[in-house]
Design a protein around this nucleic acid. Structure first.
Lengths: 320, 320
DNA sequence: GTCGGCGAGGCAAACGGTTGCAGAAACCTT
DNA sequence: AAGGTTTCTGCAACCGTTTGCCTCGCCGAC
């Protein structure tokens, strides 16, 4: 049914190896022959079978992309960019969603390992030790996670947090709530670490929180009660959920409490109040992570991407 | 390096075919032997090589999932559900984003065809004829597209549109703008067809529009100028963009214009005003589409999913 | 002339499994 | 006890490509 290298070979009276070479090492075959083969192949609608190719070469031309939650608007731009970049290099992408569950994440990596040439691990929830162990099975590139000796694309979360807190401080806020994310999150740790070093602030830590609107909704009462006038949330979803919750309790944002998120996802850019947030270069990260993975040279390269604060409507002066 | 069926065979003194059978046809091998094999396999950390398996069986245990734009919040829940369902059946999912470009879509299908057992085509932009032609290469299940003889999962867009328009009519709106989507969109056609049959309304059609906020933003001036007091938008993104644009022009929503979207995506549920919209069962569709694809019986089955109107804050009484 | 070198293309063995066929052993029947 | 089943396992071909090796013919150099 499907047309193979053999059919092409027969069609133009050469051996299969010649056809094979026409595609995988064109310079080894005489231009005249090559053209005949190409013509025949095109004619028959031949497409190389990647599974067969993978079997001999050991390269699948597939890469895995593992994220905690596709439905979190932070990831789609990253995925999209990674996929586009991969496609340009003739690779396909397996996208897998772990549902924020480290066990699922591990199993996914294990089953994917043999089927891909490498895996992009985005904001993993697995422990460093486990990741190192799995790295023996398949090359990784980490996104937003730092492990010594492993290639990674990082976003400068620490800087983002500092900018955000300085912005709050500049507006006169002193008592500030920090909503952390899920356990195992590198970005969450970075945020906390950066915040802890900021002088002159009265920091209140809440967490771990689910990295979704419901997570934000859930802490809203605590936040309202703790006396903080400024909040830095783990991500925009949490921030939006929080605002939702606060508004429902008639706590005005930014009137009584200023809120800053992280990621600069679409929902934060629409509606009222528009979210003040730290922009994360997700698309760039996706692109670079793919490049890092495919140029296996550069080994333990680590790329650091800049972040910036985007001031919109969810922050304002502290009431005295 | 990697452990194969041979290693396992050697490790427990049986022929490779026995090992193969313990995994692909366990009932054909003696329980005692089977256990020995299983133990050895587990011990060595053996995992069957899917590429090799695909070569002989012709089944890859992969499925393709093609969407117009991953970054449109409508799709991630669908993708997530499809992926989870597939994983439960031991399948992996290739997700591909076409950037709303039919040519990319076609090329993607072509290259994916040999590598997957079937493809979920979500809201395709390709022509019916082209889809039918590509269907010769690989089994499809369509999502939100109806082509005779092809299995599909449909959402009742017509009903959604009717509910939305009735709601507007009930609030006293008579002059209503309909913002259609991209060319080639089935849902857009369904909406228009349903709307055209509604009696007693003064319908204004605008389109095609980009199915994103910028699409909505772009038509805002026209909508504001056309005298309509109610709007039904192609999707929530368009609706949100429109509201954004109208608000910027000091046209109040729902004060002066009521807006209804489609999809019930996350951004519409947050912020102000919360969007009145038609809920689309995306996750269910993803799940069912996978099932439909994998149980190849049921051939040209078509599944129809219900939709419903969710009234929130972006609609209100018409001013007299 | 002979020889070395080179370019082109054929041959066949892999890659890691699956599967139809066949033989052996065990388990009935009568 | 012989014959017929059934159950289990080995054998080997095959899936579609790649690739190391070999051959063949041709060219230029000496």
């Amino acid at each position: 049914m499907t047309v193979t290298i053999k059919d092409v070979a027969r069609a133009c009276g050469v051996h299969v190896s010649t056809v094979s070479r026409t595609f995988s090492a064109p310079h080894l075959v005489n231009p005249a022959t090559r053209n005949r083969v190409l013509a025949a192949a095109d004619d028959l609608g031949y497409r190389p079978n990647r599974a067969a190719r993978a079997l001999t070469t050991g390269r699948t031309f597939n890469i895995g992309l593992i994220v905690a939650d596709i439905a979190n608007p932070f990831f789609p731009p990253l995925i999209k960019a990674a996929q586009a970049q991969a496609r340009g290099r003739d690779y396909h992408v397996f996208v897998a969603d772990t549902d924020e569950d480290p066990r699922v994440e591990e199993e996914l990596i294990r089953t994917l390992a043999k089927q891909v040439d490498g895996v992009l691990l985005c904001s993993p929830r697995l422990s460093n030790r486990m990741i190192e162990r799995l790295a023996e099975d398949v090359p990784f590139v980490l996104v937003n996670r730092r492990i010594k000796g492993m290639p990674a694309v990082l976003m400068d979360v620490g800087k983002g947090a500092r900018l955000a807190l300085e912005h709050l401080a500049g507006l006169g806020h002193r008592r500030i709530a920090l909503l952390s994310g899920p356990p195992g999150s590198w970005t969450s740790n970075e945020m906390q670490a950066a915040a802890a070093e900021m002088p002159g602030l009265d920091l209140l830590f809440f967490g771990p929180n689910q990295p979704t609107e419901s997570g934000g909704l859930a802490v809203a009462p605590e936040v309202a009660a703790c006396g903080a006038t400024g909040v830095l949330a783990y991500n925009d979803l949490v921030a939006l959920g929080l605002i939702e919750g606060l508004t429902a309790m008639d706590v005005e944002v930014p009137g009584r409490i200023s809120v800053i998120g992280f990621d600069d996802i679409l929902p934060g850019r629409l509606g009222r109040p528009k979210l003040t947030t730290v922009a994360m270069p997700a698309a760039v990260a996706g692109r670079m992570a793919v490049d890092l993975l495919l140029q296996s040279e550069g080994e333990g390269a680590v790329i650091n991407l800049d972040t910036g604060l985007i001031v919109r409507e969810s922050t304002g002066r502290a009431q005295s």
